[in-house]
Amino acid sequence: MEGTSLYLPIVILLMQCSPSSPVTVSSNRHKVEVREFSDAVLSCMFHTERDQNPRIEWKKKGKGVSFVYFDGQFKGPFEGRASIEGATVTLQRVTQDDAGEYRCEISAPLDSVNLGETNVTLKVLVPPHTPSCEIPSGAVTGSVVQLRCRDQQSIPPATYSWYKDGQQISPPRHTNATYLINARIGILEFKSVAKEDTGRYSCLASNGVGPPKMCEGKRMTIEDVNVSAVVAAVVVVCLVILICGCGGYLLHRNGFFSRHRGRSNVNYIPPPQESTDFKHTQSFML
C-alpha cells in the first residue's frame, strides 16, 4: 500500500508533462458508392488537443473548390437536402452532379497543430437504361455484318449480351467461329453471314446495379446473291456502253459533231452580180 502511494505522484507528474495529441481528422469510409437518388453518408471524425469548439468545413473539389458546409450552414445545391452530425455529413437523394471528391476540414486555433483534413470520394451508381440497338433489316450471304448495342448512361458501364429469337447467343469458343461478340462495347459481328443467321435479334445491357434492360428486337433477313441476275445486268450494261460508243464514233466520222455544223450565216452579204444583158439607158445622137 505504501509502494502504491509512493508511485502515484510520479504517474500524475508524467501525465501532466506528456504532450497532448494535436487535432486529428479521419474517416471510416474514404470511398462511398451509392445508387442514384439514395442517401450518401460522408463520414468525418476528429480529435482536438485543447479547442472544444473547432470550426467544421466541407468542400467539394471540381474545376474549382466549392463550399458544401461553411459557418454552420449548407451551401448551394446542398442547402435543404443535407444534414450533419458531429462532422459527418449525409447527402439526400444524390445524383450524378453530386459525384466527386469531398474534403472535411477541422480548424482548431487553440491547438498546436490547428488544421486537419480528410478526403472522401463519392461515386453515384446508375442502373442500366434501355440500350439503343443498330440491327440491319437485311444483308446478302457472305457479307460482313455488325450489330451494335449501347447504353450511354449506366455507371459503371454496362456489359452486353445478344439474343436471337429469344435465345442467348453464346460467346464463340474457338477462333474460326463465324461470329464475334464484344461484350464490353456491345458489338455482334458476323464474318460471313449465311441464310441460317436470319432471325429476330435483341441486346441486353447489365451492370449489376439495377435490373438489366433489353432493347426491342428487330428481324434481320439474309438473302442469297442472285448470280445469274448480276451477270445478266453486267452484260446488258456492257452492251449499252459498246453501242453508245460505236454510234458516237460513226456520227463523229460523218461530221455530225463538226465545229461549223449548224451555224447560220446571218451576216453574210452576197457580192454584186454583173448583168448579162446589155441595155441602153440613154439615146445616142448619130
Rank of each mutant, 00 (worst) to 15 (best):
residue 168 Q to P: 10
residue 209 V to A: 07
residue 99 A to T: 05
residue 117 E to K: 10
residue 168 Q to S: 08
residue 233 A to S: 14
residue 155 I to N: 07
residue 203 C to F: 08
residue 200 R to I: 14
residue 214 M to Q: 15
residue 110 L to E: 14
residue 216 E to A: 11
residue 128 P to M: 02
residue 160 Y to C: 03
residue 97 D to Q: 15
residue 117 E to V: 09
residue 236 V to R: 14
residue 140 V to Q: 15
residue 186 G to T: 02
residue 187 I to C: 00
residue 171 P to I: 01
residue 205 A to I: 04
residue 178 T to A: 13
residue 113 V to T: 14
residue 158 A to L: 01
residue 200 R to K: 11
residue 229 A to M: 15
residue 216 E to R: 10
residue 120 V to C: 00
residue 158 A to K: 01
residue 206 S to Q: 14
residue 116 G to I: 03
residue 230 V to E: 12
residue 236 V to P: 02
residue 231 V to E: 14
residue 189 E to V: 07
residue 125 L to E: 04
residue 158 A to E: 04
residue 153 Q to I: 08
residue 115 L to G: 06
residue 114 N to M: 12
residue 234 V to N: 15
residue 188 L to V: 08
residue 126 V to W: 03
residue 225 V to T: 10
residue 220 M to P: 11
residue 219 R to F: 07
residue 126 V to T: 11
residue 177 A to N: 03
residue 167 Q to K: 10
residue 163 Y to A: 02
residue 165 D to N: 10
residue 160 Y to S: 02
residue 166 G to R: 00
residue 125 L to N: 02
residue 134 E to R: 11
residue 207 N to A: 04
residue 203 C to L: 07
residue 129 H to A: 13
residue 134 E to N: 11
residue 106 I to P: 01
residue 101 E to G: 03
residue 211 P to F: 02
residue 103 R to K: 13
residue 164 K to M: 00
residue 197 D to T: 00
residue 202 S to T: 06
residue 195 K to A: 13
residue 96 Q to I: 12
residue 138 G to R: 12
residue 121 T to H: 12
residue 139 A to F: 06
residue 235 V to W: 12
residue 180 L to T: 06
residue 121 T to F: 11
residue 180 L to M: 06
residue 210 G to F: 08
residue 179 Y to R: 02
residue 210 G to A: 05
residue 145 V to W: 02
residue 96 Q to A: 13
residue 181 I to N: 04
residue 172 P to A: 07
residue 139 A to W: 05
residue 211 P to L: 08
residue 169 I to H: 01
residue 177 A to L: 00
residue 108 A to N: 10
residue 175 T to Y: 08
residue 237 V to N: 15
residue 164 K to E: 03
residue 94 V to F: 02
residue 175 T to F: 06
residue 217 G to W: 03
residue 195 K to L: 13
